[in-house]
Design a protein around this nucleic acid. Sequence first.
DNA 1: GATGAATGAGATTTCATTCAT
DNA 2: AATGAATGAAATCTCATTCAT
Lengths: 223, 223, 223, 223
Amino acid sequence: MATSTKRNLKENAIIDAAEKVFSEQGFANTKMEDVASEIGISKGTIYFYFSSKENLYMAITYRAFQALIDTFYESVEATKDQSGLEGLVGLMKSFIAFSEKNFLYSEAMLDFISFVRSTSNGVLDEKITDAMKVSSYYERVRDIQNIPISIFLKEIERGRKDGSILNKQKPELIYLYAWANVLGFVKLNATSGKKTSILKVEITDWRNYIIRHTRKMLTDPDA
Amino acid sequence: MATSTKRNLKENAIIDAAEKVFSEQGFANTKMEDVASEIGISKGTIYFYFSSKENLYMAITYRAFQALIDTFYESVEATKDQSGLEGLVGLMKSFIAFSEKNFLYSEAMLDFISFVRSTSNGVLDEKITDAMKVSSYYERVRDIQNIPISIFLKEIERGRKDGSILNKQKPELIYLYAWANVLGFVKLNATSGKKTSILKVEITDWRNYIIRHTRKMLTDPDA
Amino acid sequence: MATSTKRNLKENAIIDAAEKVFSEQGFANTKMEDVASEIGISKGTIYFYFSSKENLYMAITYRAFQALIDTFYESVEATKDQSGLEGLVGLMKSFIAFSEKNFLYSEAMLDFISFVRSTSNGVLDEKITDAMKVSSYYERVRDIQNIPISIFLKEIERGRKDGSILNKQKPELIYLYAWANVLGFVKLNATSGKKTSILKVEITDWRNYIIRHTRKMLTDPDA
Amino acid sequence: MATSTKRNLKENAIIDAAEKVFSEQGFANTKMEDVASEIGISKGTIYFYFSSKENLYMAITYRAFQALIDTFYESVEATKDQSGLEGLVGLMKSFIAFSEKNFLYSEAMLDFISFVRSTSNGVLDEKITDAMKVSSYYERVRDIQNIPISIFLKEIERGRKDGSILNKQKPELIYLYAWANVLGFVKLNATSGKKTSILKVEITDWRNYIIRHTRKMLTDPDA
DNA sequence: GATGAATGAGATTTCATTCAT
DNA sequence: AATGAATGAAATCTCATTCAT
């Protein structure tokens, strides 16, 4: 176990470094050498822990889902004494904050969804598929990818039971709508760099507007 | 003019081919050779027409903006006898349809925005910047990139004047909200290929829901 | 003959252009396109007149030898009433002035000598050799390359007869010595660009020194 | 140090190979692949040690200056008990021998001078400039390029003090004159390969003549 | 004669991955 | 475990030359 722990420590240190440089330069523009030198080890060492660059990215993806799940659970915990509506609004706020803070995570999760969907269609080229398949993290991510969704759906359920959510749409549709909103917001935001406004709109105003709108949507029986 | 036309024809044929293979394989995974063989010419010929791969992508980006503008104008024309609200809803429908049909265009436009922002921040690496700067299409895109926005904003104005749009938010905020929605929707759909559902939700239902919601937002004086 | 003249005119215009751009950018850095656009014609047209880039350079080489020969004859003519020594010093001055004015010519003649010597050793790679061999100018240059030398040697002969040249070395040795001096002077000079001094030495002083020294060498029976 | 030495060994082995093939085929005609296969390694390995082809050439240039400096110091050492005149004649002999033996070195040094001059004029194209600038060898060469000159000038100084050198010209002028002589001699000999004569002149005779003449020049108070 | 679009071999360079130590 | 030298496939791009019009 000592060995295992040590190994984990190193593995995590590498993932930390990878997150940093991938965030700064993007996945495609980052060389394994960059990741290695960020943490002061050699390229070869990375390959001892990760079978490929893709696999390293998959490890980040796993972290992303884990972190989102943690964030969601914390949010649920924090609003458990409030209505389901507030729980869901809380999830939304957490989701936005999470994605803004971790753009890389946001992208990684999206890439994973794309990847899974594309491979199930047999569209993607085999090389990448193979690289992914041998990834020890691939299965792990598959196992947890749906947890955020189920948390979200559960809160909708709760809100419906306690009468705070009146929207009658399929819960999954509400989730998709919410996710798309967050995703679009974050994507467009990412292009604005350090700026606090885009198209003359304060980003804070925009963020608030999304929340307000979500609340409206959830409480509208005709929405 | 004959010469000019001929040149344009070829140029367009190359862009056609590039769109096809970029769409299928992605920009990074596509070699210039792939584009060339798609259309049955040699690599060198492409470089005769386009100074770099980036430039070729910029040509596609130009097309993307042009196509979106055309789509917007057509939509405006089609709804000119209806209220401003209907005009805006029409734009929204067009926007979604456009993005679903042309995922590559959607990505290209987003990349361009990112690019402009990052260069104005001096963040991007010089090599790409240079390649872009010499692009004859770069300036063209800069010139037209804001036209879709202004069309959108004009319809909001019209709707406010004729009383069909009651939402009091900044027009730019509405645009951003709408764009984010479309973007998120398209991104999540991107690789679904032939699939008609996601998370058990029919994509058609989702699409309709976005439209319905947009309408609600626009007619709500408190939204 | 009308045709022939017309052809010659065009040919010469192309060589003029080539001289200009080769001088400015160097042979290797110059594209056929550069030569063509310099004179406002198409690349294809150049190939109608010259079978290859090498051949075009060979045409310049031919001009170089012709020009040197002309320069030498003029010098000889100008000093025919003076001693052989003065004739030789005159040649030397002409040689230097010629080389300074026409660095490209100087290089071209040197390249030709190198080429001939290397091919007679079978050292040079075959591709270049073939390109050269089909050159219509190649033979022409071969025919006249030794004329400058023989002019030079004749003046030495004359100077010895009239007692103005006392140096007893082989005439060819004197020629080589003189040529090397001019060549080295011009080469080092070329690196100084527009500057009128190099290593704190005024180029004019250096030039004069070479002349003075040549005179000394020629009049010294022990040199 | 073991690592450093090992790296240096390989680096030098690559430079050795590059010298060989550049000498045989010329810089422009040589592919990195040629250099690699000469030493039985892969292209990539060369790029691991040298960032570009230019950089590799710059390494050779550095060697060239180093070798000339070594040669000069050895010559100075060997003649330190003799007069300054003999010291200078010794340098001259060494210079000639050095340049004959290392034509590539001779060219490299000349190219470097050209390069520095042209960049200080802002003439050279940017691509090469950049490639050169990142060269770790570039700075090294800049640091040592003037050492040969100063050694030469010092010997002139010494000869003047001990009365063996009577020539009153500027030392720099003498250096230029000498250098031009060597350069011209070497250039004209360059491709003669195994040949021992040119224009019916034994190269040995020519070489001796240059030396004799240098001596005459140095001892002539009116030269 | 002239054009310039088209070619395609080949050049430099990059970088994920391997492997001997 | 760790290293980092070595690999080599592949990518972008260049340009002398050809050839249909």
